[in-house]
């Protein structure tokens, strides 16, 4: 059985998808200070992908995100673990955090901690899981 599809969904999937993705990034970045973070951000992005799936099926998801889920999972995990390992280079403990201030082109100077790359890793893994689900369980008709 095919999930029902409406015209409105079809039309809004594109714009809504991009807004949701942006929102997920916003949640990811603000997570350290307000509700949000890598999980929640990743789950929102995942929900956006589901929307895309509802609109266009597994192929649509595949067209939207061309990265293989395995790779995305691997990268996310590697990023999180490497963030944990990095402190060893400066003689700190595994997973020890440091405060950072980064100059970004549009946003100016952003104060954050090394927890951010860690959270980004989390984000990727969550998105990777949703991708994997949609490609496999969602793939069969």
């Amino acid at each position: 059985m095919k999930l029902s599809r409406s015209l409105i969904l079809d039309m809004s999937a594109g714009p809504v998808f991009h807004v949701a993705l942006l929102f997920s990034a916003f949640l990811l970045f603000r997570g350290h200070n307000a509700p949000g973070g890598g999980f929640i951000g990743g789950l929102v992005a995942g929900a956006a992908l589901v929307l895309r799936y509802v609109a266009g099926g597994a192929d649509e998801v595949h067209r939207t995100v061309r990265v293989a889920p395995e790779l995305m999972l691997g990268l996310g995990l590697a990023l999180a673990v490497l963030t944990g390992v990095a402190p060893w280079l400066v003689g700190d403990q595994f997973l020890e955090s440091a405060k950072l201030s980064v100059d970004l082109p549009l946003l100016g100077t952003v104060k954050t901690t090394t927890a951010l790359p860690f959270d980004i890793g989390v984000y990727f893994v969550v998105v990777g899981l949703v991708l994997a689900v949609l490609r496999t369980i969602g793939g069969e008709e």
Partner: peptide, 20 residues
Amino acid sequence: ALTAIVITFGLTAFLLALAY
């Protein structure tokens, strides 16, 4: 609890795949 929720979610998804 948040950690537990996410873990349960991942494993439930796996179990559903197994059922499928």
